[in-house]
Design a protein around this nucleic acid. Structure first.
Lengths: 237, 237
DNA sequence: AGCTATTATGAGGCTTCCTCATATGCTCAC
DNA sequence: GTGAGCATATGAGGAAGCCTCATAATAGCT
């Protein structure tokens, strides 16, 4: 990239950055493979091709290293979410996109959920909140904000409660799906979005409020997924 | 109680049981106060007035002791839930009772949530499910079953998804409320129960169905119900 | 009281996290 | 080039925790 001398790693700065990166990669691998308790600093150092003591020049301690690894995960997730969500679509579609993205990401890298719980445990105790997670959650908040601005959502919607339902449900669903060795199930997302029906502002919704019925489309999708689940299970026996 | 000799602790059996109990009490106290990593076997032994080595006559290791502590917590919660829920009430009321009970319990003893996550981490990795939690979740399942039997709930309701939404939302809500130092918020429960509206069977929803259903629609609904029934059978094995 | 089986003890082995005295290597002035 | 000075790297060892095991105490029974 840069027009500088022909060494593979030019400046000291670049070499340090590369080393920092190799530490982080090694740490991520070991943490996800072995869990926090199964991970030793010695093993991380070995994989990063450095001495154990060198680790402590880059990260204060094991807990701190874990926090950085977990923070990076959520930062990456934020980038992906911003790409996955199309802000020009109706709010309901955006929520569907985000839910789908979040659910598949959790299923594919569920180890990170466990690591996140460990990273939150801070020195004393009071369940520290990771900044990178706050940023990630803002993606959701912005969708809701846009919905209210465009009058596609009622202002009466209690944001924080929706957040908890949204992310709480998806995390639990991811765990369940993983336990059943299912890659993804669109009905989870469909089901979840029903929650937001009462807050949608449409021509018909005012009259319909409270009498919401699941649409044929939704039910079709659900049936489809359930069928493929059954078939897959039968296959495996 | 028993008419036996005047020793405070009669039989050896009783003495052992008392010691086991004092270990569990001490362990629970230390784990909740200091967290898993902050807890040392030495401290537990000290509080239980026994030697450190004696701990290992009662529990294989620290992880095992933690699992017992956490298991007891959920067993107690199950007892409380069975009392808190009045099975003669309409299903919606029962769900409200359970949600309220669960939420307050989590808020009051949120440390236990963290300990539960740690207790699940089993030797290798594959996120072990604690039996006592399965028992606890059955309280919810039974309410739904009763609802279907009494035709207060549609059979099309996908049980496991509802479970995940129910418990996932409540856990996240509990964390949020704690963070804001709120003891309890009834709107969380209200909000959550909206989810189950589409599955409630009432006079109006039957009438509405009669007005709008085409024959295709009826067939769809029948297929859906049969499918979910199949899934439920599989689940209960 | 004495004998056996059960229960209790805590010193020490082993592992792990982290520190620190020492070593290595880079940069730049001359 | 060469040496001074500073940044970076190393791994031996201290400290602390989990768990084992040889030994001690105790209970139950005749």
């Amino acid at each position: 990239m840069s027009a500088s001398s022909s060494h593979t790693k030019n400046t000291q700065r670049e070499r340090l950055e590369a080393k920092e990166q190799s530490i982080l990669t090694a740490a991520t691998d070991v943490f996800t493979a072995l869990g926090v308790d199964g991970t030793t600093m010695a093993e991380i150092a070995r994989r990063a091709h450095i001495a154990e003591g060198t680790l402590y020049l880059y990260h204060k301690n094991k807990q701190d290293l874990l926090a950085v690894v977990v923070g990076n995960f959520w930062a990456d997730l934020t980038k992906g979410a911003l790409i996955a969500v199309d802000a020009s679509l109706p709010v309901k579609q955006q929520l569907k996109q985000l839910a789908t993205y979040h659910l598949t990401a959790l299923i594919q890298q569920f180890d990170m959920v466990g690591l996140t719980y460990r990273a939150r445990l801070r020195h004393g105790e009071p369940e520290y909140q990771l900044p990178k997670i706050r940023e990630y959650v803002r993606v959701f908040d912005q969708i809701i904000e846009r919905g209210i601005n465009r009058s596609q959502l009622s202002e009466a919607l209690p944001l924080w409660q929706c957040r908890d339902v949204f992310y709480g449900s998806l995390e639990y669903s991811a765990r369940t799906l993983l336990l059943r060795e299912v890659q993804f199930d669109p009905t989870v997302v469909e089901q979840l979005l029903v929650m937001f029906k009462p807050y949608e502002v449409t021509e018909t919704s005012v009259a319909k409020a409270g009498l919401t019925n699941t649409s044929d489309d939704t039910r079709l999708a659900r049936i489809e997924a359930q069928l493929s689940l059954l078939l897959k299970e039968k296959e495996q026996r």
